[in-house]
Design a protein around this nucleic acid. Structure first.
Length: 216
DNA sequence: CATACATGCTTTCGGTCCAG
DNA sequence: CTGGACCGAAAGCATGTATG
C-alpha cells in the first residue's frame, strides 16, 4: 500500500482536516512548534492561550518579557525551562537578523530556510519542517512519532527508520502540493492520537485495519 | 572523526488497579 | 461502582559518553 492510498483512505474516513494548525499568524506557529515538542496539543493550546491573554504575540514581546514570566505562561506545555530558553533565543535571533519581520526569513528558498532554522538551538528536523510547512507555507513534508508508529505498524517501514528516510519514502509516493502535505500530516496526527495510539490502540475503528498486521 | 546510544527535561491527561 | 493513588504516554532536542 502506498502513501497516496493511505492519504485517500484517511481523508475519506476523517473528512477534510482543513487548516487545522492555528492560523493566528506565522510567529504563533513557530512558538507552537517548539511548545509541542514531546507534548500533547491540548497542553500547548493552554500555553498559547496564556501568551495571547498576556498579549505576547511578537518576537519583541517575547524578549521584553522577564524569562520567569515566560516560563510561567508556557508552563502547561511541560519542559517549560528549556522551551522558554529556546523561544527566547529564537526571538532574539529573529529580531537581530530580520528586525522581527518573518517575511524576510520566509523569502528564502526552502533548502536555505531549512538549513538556517536547523542552526538554531531547539529547532531540530521536525520543528524546522513544521515551521516551513505551516508558517512559511512551502512544500516541506513533516514526519513525526505518529507517522513512524503508523508506518511501522503497517509494516511499510522498519520501526527504527530515521527521520529523513521515512520522509523520503513518503514524498516519493505523493504529489508535491502544499495543501496535500498539510492535510496528510494532519490526518496522520488524527489517526495517531485517536486510533493508532501507543498504548490502547482502537484497531476496531481504524480505517487501515484491513491492511495492518499489528491488530490488537 | 563519525556514528550510536543514553539521559535530562516537566506538565497534563487518560488508563489501570485496588480499597472503601 | 466510585474515587483516588499511581503510572506511562504525549508533534523532540541537545548534550555527553561509548564504540568503530
Amino acid at each position: 500500500m502506498n502513501s497516496f492510498e493511505i492519504y485517500k483512505i484517511l481523508k475519506n474516513h476523517f473528512g477534510e482536516v482543513g487548516s487545522w494548525w492555528p492560523k493566528d499568524g506565522p510567529f504563533e506557529v513557530i512558538i507552537g512548534s517548539i511548545l509541542t515538542q514531546q507534548s500533547t496539543w491540548t497542553n500547548v493550546e493552554k500555553a498559547l492561550q496564556n501568551l495571547k491573554e498576556a498579549n505576547v504575540l511578537t518576537p519583541k514581546d517575547i524578549v521584553s518579557l522577564p524569562l520567569n514570566t515566560l516560563k510561567e505562561l508556557i508552563k502547561p506545555s511541560g519542559f517549560f525551562n528549556q522551551k522558554a530558553e529556546r523561544i527566547r533565543k529564537v526571538s532574539e535571533y529573529l529580531i537581530e537578523k530580520y528586525n522581527g519581520d518573518l517575511d524576510l526569513l520566509f523569502a528564502k528558498d526552502r533548502k536555505n530556510l531549512r538549513d538556517e532554522l536547523l542552526q538554531l538551538k531547539g529547532i531540530g528536523k521536525e520543528t524546522a519542517d513544521s515551521i516551513i510547512l505551516y508558517a512559511a507555507e512551502k512544500n516541506e513534508f513533516v514526519v513525526d512519532a505518529y507517522t513512524k508508529r503508523v508506518y511501522s505498524r503497517l509494516k511499510i517501514v522498519e520501526e527504527e527508520i530515521d527521520y529523513e528516510n521515512l520522509k523520503n519514502h513518503i514524498i516519493r509516493e505523493i504529489p508535491e502540493e502544499l495543501l496535500l502535505y498539510q492535510e496528510f500530516h494532519g490526518l496522520i496526527v488524527l489517526l495517531g492520537k485517536n486510533i493508532c495510539k501507543k498504548k490502547n490502540p482502537n484497531c476496531k475503528e481504524c480505517p487501515l485495519s484491513s491492511k495492518c498486521k499489528f491488530i490488537k
